[in-house]
């Protein structure tokens, strides 16, 4: 009984993660500028992978593979901000006129 509940919860999490990834890819198409698209990609990186891998941890049960899956989440969450930051820096440094694309505010 408890097994079935855990499996159902895991499957629900995986399906929700799929939905998150779908919205992320939809965001890649609906948003118009690179820096905006990056936010959509960040949603997939952070929320989508967390939902899918958390569901898979529930499906794995208490095993070594589940611990390794947790390690994947940790690695992705440590590296994805650095990757986003590098891409954003590249974009802002190489774009000819950033002020045409978005509002710049100094505080």
């Amino acid at each position: 009984m408890i097994d079935a509940v855990v499996t159902a919860a895991g499957l629900a999490l995986v399906l929700f993660g799929l939905f998150v990834f779908f919205s992320a890819v939809l965001g890649l198409y609906r948003l118009h500028y690179v820096l905006d698209r990056m936010h959509a990609a960040a949603v997939g990186d952070a929320l989508g992978i967390f939902c899918i891998l958390a569901g898979l941890i529930l499906l794995h049960g208490w095993s070594l593979a589940a611990a390794k899956t947790l390690l994947i989440i940790l690695f992705l969450w440590l590296t994805s901000p650095v990757a986003s930051h590098l891409i954003a820096e590249m974009e802002v440094e190489t774009v000819p006129d950033i002020r045409r694309e978005c509002e710049v505010e100094e505080r």
Binding site: V20, S23, G27, R30, H39, V92, V104, E105, E106, R107
Partner: peptide
Amino acid sequence: VMRLIYTKGAQVEPKLIWF
């Protein structure tokens, strides 16, 4: 952000802030 993608789409107002 997911809600923004679905409701606003291309009408978002991106902003670059220095602080």
